[in-house]
Computed example of a mutant assay.
Amino acid sequence: MTVTGYRATAQRPDVLGRLPGDEQLDAFREALCRNTTLVDVLDRCTTLDLPHWYLAGGCLFQTVWNVVTNRPPDEGIRDYDLFYFDDTDTSWSAEDARIRAGRTVFADLSAPVLAPRTVYDAKTARWKHQWPTLTVLPWP
Rank of each mutant, 00 (worst) to 15 (best):
V15A: 07
R7G: 05
V41N: 00
N66S: 04
Q130K: 14
N66K: 03
V68E: 04
Y120T: 07
R98F: 10
L82D: 03
G58C: 05
P51D: 11
H52C: 08
T9G: 06
V136M: 06
T88P: 03
D40L: 09
P140D: 00
W131K: 02
L25W: 08
D43P: 00
Q130R: 13
F61V: 02
L134I: 03
W53Q: 01
V119M: 07
V136Y: 08
A107W: 09
F85M: 13
A122E: 13
L48E: 07
P116S: 06
Y80A: 01
L19W: 02
T90L: 10
D26T: 14
D81K: 09
L19G: 01
L109T: 02
S93Y: 10
A125D: 05
T4D: 14
A56H: 03
G57M: 03
G58H: 01
S91P: 11
D43L: 12
C45I: 08
M1R: 11
V67A: 00
L32T: 03
T124I: 05
F85L: 03
A107Y: 07
K128A: 10
R100G: 01
G21C: 12
H52I: 13
G57W: 01
T36K: 14
A101S: 13
P20Q: 07
D87R: 09
V67K: 01
V39P: 00
F83S: 01
Y54G: 09
C59V: 09
L25E: 15
L137R: 10
D74M: 02
D89P: 12
V119N: 05
T118E: 15
L16I: 15
V68N: 01
W53Y: 14
Y6F: 13
P140M: 00
G5H: 06
F85E: 08
Q130D: 15
D74E: 08
F85A: 11
R12W: 11
E95K: 13
A111G: 10
T69S: 09
D96Y: 12
G58D: 09
E75F: 05
L114Q: 10
P20S: 06
V39K: 04
T133L: 06
